[in-house]
Design a protein around this nucleic acid. Sequence first.
DNA 1: ATAGGGTTAG
Length: 650
Amino acid sequence: MTAVLRKHNLCSLRSFLTPQHNLRLYPRILIASAYGLLHTAAEPQHSVEAAKKLVPCEHLEQNQAKPISLAQNHGEFVISVIKSITLKTQLAQVHAHILRTSLVQDPKVSLHFLTRVALSGPLQDTNYARYFFGQISYPSVYLYNTMIRAYSVSNSPEQGFYLYRDMRRRGFCIDPLSSSSAIKSCIKIQYLLGGVQVHGCILKDGHQSDSLLLTALMDIYSQCGKCDEACKVFDEMPQKDTVAWNVLISCYIRNNRTRDALNLFHVMQSGSYKCQPDDVTCLLLLQACAHLNALEFGERIHGYMLEHGYCASKLSNSLIYMYSRCGCLDKAYEVFIATTNKDVVSWTAMISGLAMNGYGRAAIEAFEEMQRMGIRPDDQTFTGVLSACSHSGLVDAGMAFFHRMSEEFGITPNVHHYGCVVDLLGRAGVLDQAYQLIMSMVVKPDSTIWRTLLGACRIHGHVSLGERIIEHLIELKAQEAGDYVLLLNMYSSASQWEKVAEVRKLMKEESIQTTPGCSTIELKGVVHEFVVDDTSHRRNKEIYQMLDEINAQLKIAGYVVELSSELHKLDDKEKQYVLAYHSEKLAIAFGVLATPPGTTLRVANNLRVCVDCHNFMKIFSWVYNRDLIVRDRNRVHHFRGGHCSCSDYW
DNA sequence: ATAGGGTTAG
């Protein structure tokens, strides 16, 4: 028997070692394998000697492939070989070897092998993993788990879910890891129904107290827009750790409940929970502050970060972003200067911040300074620079950057770049050139590009081009309420009421809804939210009284309601009434009511501020002698003494 | 024996 075994192994060994060039290329693995094979022979001492004869000694010393303990068996040895594999070709060799020796059916060996193929960085190859997995007659739970996990990170995650289901059908004992990987697969493809099924399984398996599983579940509900479900899972968690809180916060941010997200910062630290926010919490909350223009809250987070020594560059860059979006460039710059090792992201954050606030030339200077510091701009840096040019009306400079980008830096323009340039030309009134540029794009123009030009048509009252653009959008099946609103704007500016009625009818038929305007204002770290005609605030009555008073004051100072901002076909008196209660005005009125004279007011709006509100704000800043900082979708407007930082509207 | 959850910095 031993003789047969020895003969068999030595044969394998010979076949394994035959090609000389392989020995040169992969000495370590071959030597190791040689040892491994020989160790299974009946007389190990002899085997080692034999191996030394087969494999030149210098290789042995060079690669420190010392003979391992004789007590270890072949399988363990092969595992150590598997662990040392660094190349795909070696992987194939070992694969062939374990097939030949039937080691492939050894659960430990196959698990190690699959792990390397399925999950380990450079060797990762899902197809190979699938092929290998298919060769196992009786896969263990671990092998299944590893395979599901492999699928979940591959580009066919649905397979992970199917395998999980298959595993359950076959009656395997499911452990939390299986379900966790299955959820990951579902998250990747936003497969809510799959997530719900796994949720049911988790309850059936009795894993409903596993925090890690429950956070994964929250995440899938969150990513599929099921905020309430995510909250329910959170509420039922026996132990809520920081990660769970972070998932809840990111869920709120993702699902437009930014204000609730901010509130959690205090709730999580409160008496009953006593959970410490970590660096991820800070990062998420800074994003929320940036959304809401909540400077004071952002400063509070900043203070908390300093207190706890959270100063990773990711957080610095988030701070720069938050301060810029809140219109607080001094602070953004302060953080930027204090950031050691400024990388391309830090520079881009600063450049975009300057651009957003209307400091086009400063943004360009920063761009040049960045290059002097030897930091190479990337595509996003150019998005910042180009938007700086478009916001500041620097047409020639913008076009020059656009050309340099591809010629000098080899960056192919993407939709954002084209968007900026179309915006640049559009604002400058060169609409036809902008149209030509879009038509000449190598990549198919997307709806955003068309929408940008549509916005320019609205500014310049170019109705016929606007109609053509709507057709392009319809062709892309991408028309949104906002597009029709712009078209409506154009028609109503041109008093084409029949067309207005036509478009309204179309919108109603296709049940296209307009996004309601919503403004927020932060006072003492508390964010107050208003929608148009909002009457839900507890100081509602006072707010409307104050707004009426402000309107009266501004009229004395020469403010005239810009009626073209209202789309409805109403008589002028009715229009005035509707325009008077736009959400940004309500927020400003509340600000006046609740702060001492002279306090800067900061308002954020989810849409673009309309022409009438823009005029209102200018005159307000002068009559009430207050600085007013208003952030809409992508710009920060600074109002002071009757002027706006943006010289013209938009 | 697998080694599991949150950040997608601009």
